[in-house]
Design a protein around this nucleic acid. Sequence first.
DNA 1: CTATTATTGCAACAAAGTCGCATTAAATGA
DNA 2: TCATTTAATGCGACTTTGTTGCAATAATAG
Lengths: 123, 123
Amino acid sequence: MKRRNTKSKEQVLQIFRQENTALSHEMIQSKLESVERATIYRILNRFHEDGVLHKVTGEDNKQYFALCKNCENGQHKHHHLHFQCLTCKTVECLENEITFSIPQGYQVQDFQALMTGVCSRCA
Amino acid sequence: MKRRNTKSKEQVLQIFRQENTALSHEMIQSKLESVERATIYRILNRFHEDGVLHKVTGEDNKQYFALCKNCENGQHKHHHLHFQCLTCKTVECLENEITFSIPQGYQVQDFQALMTGVCSRCA
DNA sequence: CTATTATTGCAACAAAGTCGCATTAAATGA
DNA sequence: TCATTTAATGCGACTTTGTTGCAATAATAG
Ligand SMILES: [Mn+2]
Ligand SMILES: [Mn+2]
Ligand SMILES: [Zn+2]
Ligand SMILES: [Zn+2]
């Protein structure tokens, strides 16, 4: 199943390239009013499958996506933290790598970590 | 607003004491068919507020709860990992503490981390 | 035992996300 | 360039998780 290049797909990607925070469906929808709701969901999911975007669930129980940096073909390798500010709701990727140990006999496919609190701008 | 001891509240707590994995609303509901759906949600939320249970969002986008061990009055201090098996869906608390650094000027209130993959039983 | 009010049950609601299906439009290659 | 194939889109209906208003019930304090 080969992926095709479409206008909406490219528009979504552009938004991620411009922004340096993680984005929810809602945020993207608001910048691309003309693109169908379900289409945006599908684009995000495809990018995620393809290792273009990685995903974190926010405190608000929404999915936030951000560009991947060193991911290859569906295998996400994000051992970094995320921070969501409870005031401005912004979700950001923190570059500090996290290290942790994996239990014997466990296979890890993905990882996500979220801190919540108040960011320096809102403090 | 003082908390009262009720039958359903105690039943929910018993389930958590017996189980050693994190539990979703669905799992508790199935063991307490007689208790109203919304009531279980409210009990879980109250326990969470009170620092009795802590919460992790699973890969399936459901909330999983587990007993807290060293939490006092609404201030959760869980710096440990969780693992969700994509096969059996089980969410477990891993006892390995995680250490990480917090950016300058950020106030952290809560933290949650989830690995997904295949557990040793399902491998 | 009585008064107060937290908790429950019920039903209605809200929000996030998914899915089936007909239509549109990329990609391929003749 | 044009026809063919099928991925992607738009639309609507739907599911799932969780919340909320309100009247009824029941735990607690005096
Ligand atoms: Mn990230
Ligand atoms: Mn835990
Ligand atoms: Zn902020
Ligand atoms: Zn398993």
